[in-house]
Design a protein around this nucleic acid. Sequence first.
DNA 1: TCCATTTATATCGCCCACGATTCATTTCTT
DNA 2: AAGAAATGAATCGTGGGCGATATAAATGGA
Lengths: 146, 146
Amino acid sequence: MKHADIPTRADDLFCYGLYTASHAVNRAYAPHLKALGLTYPQYITLTLLWEEDGRQVNTLAQKLGMETSTLTPLVKRLEAMGHVTRSKSALDGRAVEVRLTDAGKALSQQAPAVTACMIGHSGLSVAELEELQALLFKLRDGLQPR
Amino acid sequence: MKHADIPTRADDLFCYGLYTASHAVNRAYAPHLKALGLTYPQYITLTLLWEEDGRQVNTLAQKLGMETSTLTPLVKRLEAMGHVTRSKSALDGRAVEVRLTDAGKALSQQAPAVTACMIGHSGLSVAELEELQALLFKLRDGLQPR
DNA sequence: TCCATTTATATCGCCCACGATTCATTTCTT
DNA sequence: AAGAAATGAATCGTGGGCGATATAAATGGA
């Protein structure tokens, strides 16, 4: 890439679009999730557990691309709210397994309505959303430290 | 959209891709910015000032889609580091104008190298990055509260 | 003019996010 | 089997982020 081609205006930097869009989505979800008593990261974490219950803290952190130092307090808050339980793994005494309570499982019933609402308000077609998703995954995986 | 079409798996939700990609980009920028003594939000804020100096806190917040309660402490840290000054507007006693210092202006010289490096490591072509940027802006603007 | 309303910042409390560090447990090496 | 190395969580400090609230300045209307 030639020097003249390097974008310097904020609008031209892919980091700017990602930064502002990410916060916009977070803000758009917030009112729907507030009705469920959840934050956006808590909701995404629960989504992973709805897919497969009993995951370890470490597994959740890897799926989210985050540190356990971020997830531990988040999961503790989910536990305090009665959505999950935390228990030591029988096979590995270091690992903590996170399991949904009945209340936590019940929350999953509310998810499709929220998702449908967000997709509807996104202003993007399903094809565009799939294209966006593909580009985001490619970007994320490309930046992954080798 | 029919109920059966609503994605429930985390991988299919556009919020998940955006969430993880955004953090991945933040993490990829971090080491380059650490060398400049900056965080990612600080860098993006400076980018806006390099485009046009002397903006108000309010203008910066709108450009970033953030609250002034987020920007005020961030700008104060930039001030403490000697990159900007904060002064009351002569025309409007409520407004605070943020101006780059010489040191803050000098930092802009480092930006193209960081941007080029990030684009190179993204694994995406320039065309793909432009497509991504367009979709992100469309999404962000579509979610904007009316 | 005077007072209500709006606007621009700032403050506070809570939650997220990371790096650095610590601790306990497991696994590897010999 | 014993010590070394690696691994999974947790804790701490710092810096975002937002909503609610506060304060000061500007604006508007009677």
